[in-house]
Amino acid sequence: MPQVSLKVNGKKVTVEVEPRTLLVELLREKLGLTGTHIGCDTSQCGACTVHLNGDSVKSCTMLAVQAEGAEVLTIEGLARPDGTLHPMQEMFREHHALQCGYCTPGMVMSAIDLVNKHPEGLTEEQIREGLEGNLCRCTGYHNIVKAIAAAWEIMHGKKAARAA
């Protein structure tokens, strides 16, 4: 079986995988990082979204072996070691942007990428279009859009995080 070495949430790992093992299967089954979810089998829902070298990707549409040498960031790697949440996590909570929580990890990872790539600002329309690759069945997206707009303000230094 081939071996793949990569960095996941800052930690180096080397794992034996079948060539057909998907990155999401590596994360969930080999590394026990079950925060990344699988919601479909046609690369539509985005529940499996993680960051690969700083870009959002669907970990269900990538072989684990393709991640050789890459840096992967999952939902488990966002909060600081002391438990302080990433501003996106904090704003999702503040604005009730999640209900069942299943799409949430992928949604948060996509949202962070979207905000990172748009320091110039994000309109509501851009946020909605930017979430094209993520399905949520619970919220109607309304509060997700609000949370992302609020997180943009914090991530680009326009506002401080709400005091907990």
């Binding site: 979810h37 999640l98 949430t104």
Partner: peptide
């Protein structure tokens, strides 16, 4: 009140059946 269940869902600590 902000939801208490969010802490686990937002950090990947939820436990859905396939996670067991």
């Amino acid at each position: 009140v902000r939801r208490r269940e969010d802490s686990r869902f937002l950090t990947g600590q939820g436990h859905y059946v396939d996670d067991f």
